[in-house]
């Protein structure tokens, strides 16, 4: 089951991130994972949140938001765990556009988020390799 990531286009200047986080905070939306891809003039804030619709509602009037389906896999906290996951994706010939990880709810594991060109293929292959997918 793919999960929905929100990507928010931000100008690279003071206060931009603060403002987004403030709105989410006021709306009671929990940010479960985040990463920022930045170049000189702008950045893209990518977040996984507890309530996608609510987050969109408080942000979309003043921000450019895109929603993207991403694959989230549960990875054990041990050496070689990421390698196994990437091995599975490699064998399915899935291209990873970007990825990031966050602490999962289960102690001793992390969640890894993958933006890929073939979600179904990636998920099928991960399950086949015994990786738990959110």
């Amino acid at each position: 089951m793919a999960i929905t990531q929100l990507s928010i286009f931000l100008e690279n200047k003071p206060g931009q991130l603060h403002e987004v986080v403030k709105r989410l905070s006021e709306a009671g939306v929990n940010i479960r994972a985040m990463t920022i891809a930045e170049v000189r003039d702008f950045g893209i804030l990518r977040i996984i949140v507890s309530d996608v619709e609510k987050a969109k509602a408080v942000l979309e009037d003043d921000h450019i938001i895109t929603t993207t389906e991403v694959v989230s896999a549960i990875m054990e906290d041990k050496a070689g765990a990421l390698y196994d996951i990437l091995q599975a994706l490699e064998s399915a010939n899935v291209n990873i556009e970007y990825m990031y990880a966050y602490t999962g709810e289960v102690t001793g594991s992390a969640n890894v988020v993958f933006r890929v060109d073939d979600i179904e293929g990636a998920e099928a292959k991960l399950k086949e390799a015994g990786v738990e997918v959110l």
């Binding site: 893209i44 990518r46 450019i64 938001i65 895109t66 993207t68 933006r115």
Partner: peptide, 15 residues
């Protein structure tokens, strides 16, 4: 001003 419908989540697309 960018058109929201043309912005993607990938930096390379925007560049």
């Amino acid at each position: 001003e960018a058109d929201p419908s043309r912005i993607s989540d990938k930096v390379a697309d925007i560049q």
